[in-house]
């Protein structure tokens, strides 16, 4: 596992989440996944090209996604994943990945990112068509956020 591919994302999560209203961000663990894995909840994926090429997939369970959207909207209650919450989560994935790309460039790796695609549901199988997917799990004020990085 090449830490140079992981650290920019760790830096992005620990740097950005406090700026949008979260206080305790801890890294729970790093694991290697196969190219296909199962998730439930909200999934946001962005394409990356440049010196490194691949995808990053953020996944959060549905309750966690609603809590994140609510915090991003100054505590406005979110019962359903409505348009505003979807837009907030989409923007979060964009901010995190854009920040990671700045962290990459500080390491001399230049990458550009695409617009996010958001999907949600139960028992979704995700296939990234890369043999090694590195998953970084974070606990963000009790919400589990997984960042799956498939780059080479």
């Amino acid at each position: 596992m090449d830490v140079r591919l992981i650290n920019p994302f760790i830096g992005a999560v620990t740097g950005i989440m406090p700026q949008i209203g979260f206080s305790n961000i801890t890294r729970k663990g790093i694991s290697l996944k196969e190219k296909k894995f199962m998730v439930s909840g909200v999934v946001l994926t962005l394409g990356i090209v440049g010196d490194k090429k691949g995808n990053v997939v953020y996944s959060i369970d549905m309750d966690g996604a609603k809590k994140i959207a609510s915090t991003m909207m100054m505590g406005m209650p979110v019962d359903q994943l409505d348009d505003m919450s979807k837009s907030a989560l989409s923007e979060l994935s964009n901010m995190l990945t854009a920040n990671a790309s700045i962290n990459f460039s500080n390491d001399g790796i230049n990458v550009d990112i695409s617009v996010p695609t958001m999907m949600y549901g139960e028992d979704i199988e995700i296939n990234l068509q890369k043999d090694n997917v590195v998953c970084i799990d974070f606990d963000v004020d009790g919400i589990m956020l997984s960042v799956n990085v498939a780059l080479d």
């Binding site: 394409g47 090209v49 989409s90 695409s114 139960e122 028992d123 068509q129």
Partner: peptide
Amino acid sequence: LRVSPPTIFHGKDLTISIGEI
């Protein structure tokens, strides 16, 4: 324009969100 590698989502209960852009 360049394209990133594909990501495939498979499942019985899957919803695609469109219109953020």
